[in-house]
Design a protein around this nucleic acid. Structure first.
Ligand SMILES: Nc1ncnc2c1ncn2[C@@H]1O[C@H](COP(=O)(O)OP(=O)(O)OP(=O)(O)O)[C@@H](O)[C@H]1O
Length: 678
DNA sequence: GCCAGCGGCGTTTTT
DNA sequence: CGCCGCTGGC
């Protein structure tokens, strides 16, 4: 038996051991909410609860895996607990019970690019592509439709609040949503939102609800402030009958409003579960007091806050957070890379440091600098590996093996053949309508398009691949290799930088190798996409965990000794897209709060004045979040100017840095040592 | 109908 | 700078 009290403070202990009623834990950053969930699963299992009757819903599957493996270190049975995201849970349930609501179980998951594509095609069919006036683009339409679903409200309400310029198209967009839904059902496509919608529909059936509630006797939901209405409903349905639910969250860390999340779920929890116990955690175990002092001021300046203050459990105060401003992005990158390297050489491993940013593009100069210096790093967030064109191309072949009726994939595959464009691809796919298996597809393609056309040679080559694929009992590895071999020449033809892309595909090959089945590989690719590999370099850092570069969104729930929050620029944080909406600026403000509270011991904020990563030149202003005097009081202020960059296009060599900054480096060095002595 | 080449424009966040 | 959409030759 683990002695819970030696790992938990008294409020945490109470949260962990209250298992006979609904519990809501609401507390600030770093107060040990995640730890509560971790020990509560352990406690339940040690009480004799069947681990398979515990459901742990988290924000990423990685977060669930981390918690469960820590709990399993105390009791291996915890490995058997069911954990993952709402989406992956929905996927699992729908694979199993989807038939009861009329969903085929070989459904294909549409990632966001796929769904945009399908929306485009539906738009075409409805004749909305050539409307005279300014009709929204398909990406925008997907956003509007998605938000109306996640908020469970009419299109009209979304338009009124967020897209007033498109209000006149309410009728068309509503039609489009209906046609899109129908198109998906006909093709057994399920997009991300559908996973939640269908699960909710499934749960509306009392019999299914009862069945799942008895299978999952204990529900735990992390990051509850970032769930949306659908997810809130799902959690409610699962727990309604037995009331064994714990939700934990922090309204000040709600950063997924753009996806329909609302802290209302937290507020309504006590209404939905009237006998619930609300527990607050007051102490912060993560950060030094000086970092929390800044965090508290950020918290204070939020418009609709719920009273909360962060107090450090650790009384050593550490280093004052620092704002460092630069003339241009290259100076900033040089300084960052040097400082990170220096900290690493002074005992803070790369794995204990992170660079955080609002948007991935702001980290590009730093990425080249790190590569130049041979510092290994891993990037989280930003453009997804699996959404790049070449990966999507290759995956399209795999998808038609899994589900040969997947028209979007057929069109993609066909368009890769020389002399086949959108029209011809549509025509060919239309002729395949009545095929009932892959073999018939092969026949039809051969009969109707295998000769006489400018593209027939390409079709013949595709047919060879398809015949190889049309055979039972192929291993995933074989399928992958057949497709890969077929695709390689096309890759070289379509992309100038094919060698870079080829190595991505080799990475994909490695990932695929770790899967048993095509089905699980494809669903994971969509539901829990793999990160791009570590940017590898020479042997200096072998065995050392790489530096983390991450969007603030992807850094949620995590912590590092040193955190560099870069791009503290008006228009970046807060994002320029948020500037016209007060509630969205508030969300940016919460992002700032989340970023600041990731740091355990050292926090640096940076920005550069000269914009112009190519494109427009402009003078960047410091983020409005730093203009507040109370904030500035909590920050050390510094301006670093590197020597003689006559032409900002000229890359700075590290010599420049060595020359001018020795003084600064010494003081930094001293500061670091000071902080370790604290 | 396909596709290469040119010019204008604009850089979110995620399952 | 890089992506997207448009144009015009094939
Ligand atoms: N009772 C405790 N004693 C010592 N350390 C603790 C205690 N509770 C939590 N911690 C440590 O504090 C840090 C933050 O905890 P945790 O990640 O659980 O906080 P959180 O509330 O989930 O934070 P966030 O809201 O930022 O996700 C972790 O390093 C954790 O190990």
């Amino acid at each position: 038996m683990v002695d819970l009290k030696s790992h938990l403070n008294s409020s945490q202990y109470q949260a962990v051991t209250t298992t006979d009623k609904p519990v809501l834990v609401i507390a600030g950053a770093g107060s040990g909410k995640t730890r509560v969930i971790e020990y509560r699963t352990l406690h339940l299992v040690q009480q004799g609860i069947n681990p398979q009757s515990i459901l742990l819903l988290t924000f990423t599957r990685k977060a669930a895996a981390a918690m469960l493996s820590r709990a399993a270190a105390h009791d291996p049975k915890c490995e058997q607990i069911d954990g993952g995201t709402f989406h992956s849970f929905a996927f699992k349930i729908l694979k199993r019970y989807g038939k009861t609501i009329g969903l085929e179980n070989n459904f294909t998951i549409l990632d966001s690019a796929d769904s945009n594509e399908l929306i485009g095609s539906v738009m075409g069919k409805l004749g909305y592509l050539d409307l005279k006036k300014r009709f929204p683009k398909k990406e925008t339409l997907k956003g509007i439709i998605s938000k109306s679903i996640n908020k469970q409200t009419a299109i009209k309400n979304i338009l009124e609040r967020e897209y007033p310029q498109f209000e006149e198209f309410n009728q068309e967009i509503t039609n489009l949503r209906q046609a899109y839904t129908k198109a998906k059902l006909e093709a057994s496509y399920v997009d991300y939102d559908d996973l939640l919608v269908y699960l909710k529909i499934l749960l509306e059936n009392p019999e299914m609800r009862q069945r799942l509630a008895s299978q999952y006797q204990h529900i735990m939901v992390d990051e509850y402030q970032d769930t949306n209405k659908l997810q809130g409903d799902i959690a409610y349905y699962l727990a309604e009958s037995h009331g064994n639910i714990m939700a934990v969250g922090d309204d000040a860390q709600s950063i997924y409003g753009f996806r329909g999340a609302t802290h209302q779920n937290i507020m309504e929890f006590p209404v939905r579960f009237p006998n619930c116990q609300v527990i607050k955690l007051e102490e912060n175990y993560r950060s030094t007091q000086l970092i929390l002092d800044l965090g508290n001021v950020v918290l204070d300046s939020m418009k609709d806050k719920y009273e909360k203050k962060l107090a450090a459990a650790n009384k050593q105060s550490g280093l004052k957070p620092e704002i460092v401003t630069f003339k241009n992005p290259y100076d900033e990158a040089t300084w960052l890379a040097q400082t990170i390297k220096m900290m690493r050489d002074n005992g803070i491993d790369l794995g204990k440091q992170a660079v955080l940013f609002r948007s991935a593009f702001i980290s590009i100069p730093l990425q080249s600098e790190l590569s130049k210096l041979g510092i290994p790093f891993q990037v989280y967030g930003g453009v997804k590996f699996y959404e790049t064109a070449h990966v999507k191309d290759l995956v399209a072949y795999l998808k038609i093996v899994q589900n040969f009726t997947d028209e979007l994939s057929w069109i993609r595959i066909l368009k890769l053949i020389e002399n086949i464009g959108p029209k011809t691809a549509e025509k060919i796919v239309a002729s395949l309508q009545n095929c009932i298996n892959l073999n018939q597809v092969i026949q039809t393609l051969d009969d109707e398009f295998g000769s006489d056309f400018s593209y027939s040679q390409g079709i013949k080559r595709l047919l060879k691949l398809l015949s190889k694929l049309d055979s039972d009992g192929l291993a995933l590895g074989d399928i992958f290799n057949f497709c890969f071999d077929y695709y390689k020449p096309l890759l070289k033809k379509h992309f100038d930088d094919w060698h870079l892309r080829l190595s991505d595909l080799e990475t994909l090959q490695d990932i695929a190798a770790s899967y048993e089945s095509l089905d699980s590989f494809l669903s994971d690719l969509a539901l829990e996409p793999p990160e791009r590999g570590v940017a590898q370099v020479d042997g200096t850092y072998d065995e050392e965990k790489p530096l983390t570069l991450s969007t603030i969104h992807s850094a949620k729930g995590l912590e590092w000794d040193s955190v560099f929050l870069i791009g503290m620029i008006e228009g970046v944080l807060p994002s320029r897209f948020a500037l016209n909406f007060a509630d969205q600026i508030e969300e940016e403000h919460r992002l700032f709060y989340v970023a600041v509270t990731r740091a355990k011991r050292q926090l640096y904020l940076t920005m550069h004045h000269e914009g112009g990563q190519g494109g427009l030149y402009q003078f960047n202003r410091v983020s409005r979040f730093l203009e507040d005097r109370r904030i500035l009081e909590k920050l050390e202020q510094n301006m670093v100017e590197l020597s003689k960059p006559k032409n900002k296009r000229v890359k700075l060599v590290s010599d420049d840095f060595e020359e001018i900054d020795t003084k600064d480096k010494k003081t930094l060095f001293e500061k670091i040592n000071e902080s370790w002595r604290m």
